[in-house]
Amino acid sequence: MPPTFLSTEERPLFVSYKGKLYNIRAFADKHPGGRKVLERVAGGDIDVFMHGDQRIMGVKHAHSDAAFDMLERYSMDQNFKKDKLVDSGLPVMFEVGHLKEDYWRWIHEPYDGRLRLFTSDFLERLTNTKWWAVPLIWLPLVIFFGIHGIGHMYHDYGFKLGLLISSVLFSLGTLAWTLLEYMLHREVFHWRPDPKSYTQITIHFALHGLHHKTPMDSERLVFPPTLAALIIGFFYSIYISIFPYPVFCLFAGGKLFGYICYDVIHFYLHHGRPRPTTNLHFRKVYHHNHHFKDFDAGYGISTSLWDYVFDTEGSGPL
């Protein structure tokens, strides 16, 4: 059983007001309306509730100037001015391991900015990836696999049956990606390092801790092509050796397509503005709550399917 570094009482309780992040955990028990009200809105925007434009738990209340002044005391900006890693502006990759027991709390106090990782400008540039690089690099490979796979199926089974088999294999590959996405996110990215191990903390930070610390860093939201190539190459070597070539092309093409969808959707969930009540709006809030409300739930990015299967579903809009 992995150690739990943060009890329920210690976990941050984040709310957002006018795009600014606040950790009001220390105020929760003092709130006149009770802590349950604050826990209900945790992870979301509180603008409409602060101004009394919308009810929460049956109550509508326009807050006083004093309440807004009190809220300002819990601004995350104040924390970052005292954070020796964030405030210094110095490279952090080989410094986070020294946080030891404070690391798990530190990465779950999000910073709305960028952290420099390396002293070397070259290494620093390698960590930055534009979202459009993912489809630009990998979609041609999906098209190549798809054309080859469909061509073989058409030759062996004719147009209708060949197209049906191709569609099924491609869809199974995409579904397999969603399961891999879920397992990677839950078991690898959210693996909890030994708080006494400098090496484990540094590895975890490189894998996923950085993303939770700086969730709005637009150039560190998708897999760098070099890292993605290693993972894709690993599965390529497995699939090409166990599947007939046409099956390999369609299944692997579908799985690679699933990965492209995942990275593009992930970027959109952080920076897109979907219309309320749409599926993408639900997914945005669902993932937003994973970052700011309950990081031990809601592991699915492109779909919630496996969260429901494995009982780790997160929360969507109120």
Rank of each mutant, 00 (worst) to 15 (best):
Lys18Cys: 11
Pro225Gln: 00
His212Ile: 01
Gly58Asp: 08
Arg220Ser: 10
His204Glu: 04
Glu109Gln: 07
Ile260Val: 14
Ile150Gly: 04
Arg116Trp: 10
Leu256Pro: 03
Trp131His: 12
Trp306Asp: 02
Leu85Cys: 10
Gly43Ala: 02
Lys130His: 12
Gly298Trp: 00
Phe243Pro: 05
Glu10Trp: 03
Leu71Gly: 07
Asp307Asn: 06
Gly253Tyr: 00
Thr277Phe: 13
Thr129Phe: 01
Asp87Glu: 13
Gly209Arg: 00
Gly89Cys: 00
Pro317Met: 03
Leu221Lys: 04
Thr199Met: 10
Thr129Tyr: 00
Ser237Lys: 14
Ile232Ser: 01
Ala228Arg: 03
His148Gln: 15
Phe80Pro: 06
Leu115Gly: 02
Phe205Trp: 02
Leu163Glu: 05
Val168Asp: 00
His185Arg: 04
Leu123Tyr: 04
Ile165Arg: 13
Pro2Gln: 12
Gly33Ile: 01
Asp112Asn: 09
Ile165Met: 08
Ile231Phe: 08
Leu250Trp: 02
Gln54Glu: 14
Met93Lys: 09
Phe267Tyr: 15
Tyr268Gly: 08
Arg40Leu: 13
His148Val: 07
Ile24Ala: 01
Ile24Pro: 03
Thr278Phe: 12
Ala228Phe: 00
Phe80Ser: 08
Ser88Asn: 02
Ser304Arg: 12
Phe144Ser: 08
Gly162Asp: 00
Thr129Asp: 09
Gly316Thr: 10
Lys60Ile: 02
Leu21Trp: 07
His51Phe: 02
Pro317Ala: 07
His98Ile: 05
His208Pro: 06
Gly44Val: 07
Phe159Glu: 06
Val59Ser: 10
Arg114Cys: 13
Ala42Arg: 14
Met1Ile: 12
Val37Asp: 03
Gly272Ala: 09
Met153Asp: 11
Ile147Glu: 04
Pro110His: 01
Val247Pro: 02
Gly33Ala: 00
Phe282Tyr: 09
His51Gly: 00
Leu207Gln: 09
Val142Arg: 05
Ile165Leu: 14
Arg283Lys: 14
His152Tyr: 15
Val247Gln: 15
Tyr308Val: 05
Leu172Met: 14
Leu175His: 04
Asp296Gln: 13
Tyr286Lys: 01
Ala176Arg: 12
Ala62Phe: 11
Leu164Phe: 06
Gly300Leu: 02
Glu181Val: 07
His152Val: 11
Glu124Cys: 04
Gly233Pro: 11
Tyr239Ile: 09
Ile238Cys: 10
His212Thr: 03
Lys160Pro: 08
Asn79Arg: 12
His288Cys: 09
Val247His: 13
Glu72Ser: 05
Leu126Gly: 14
Val142Asn: 02
Gln54Phe: 14
Lys160Leu: 13
Leu221Trp: 05
Gly162Lys: 05
Thr174Lys: 13
Thr312Met: 01
Asp29Thr: 13
Phe122Met: 10
Ala26Phe: 10
Glu124Gln: 13
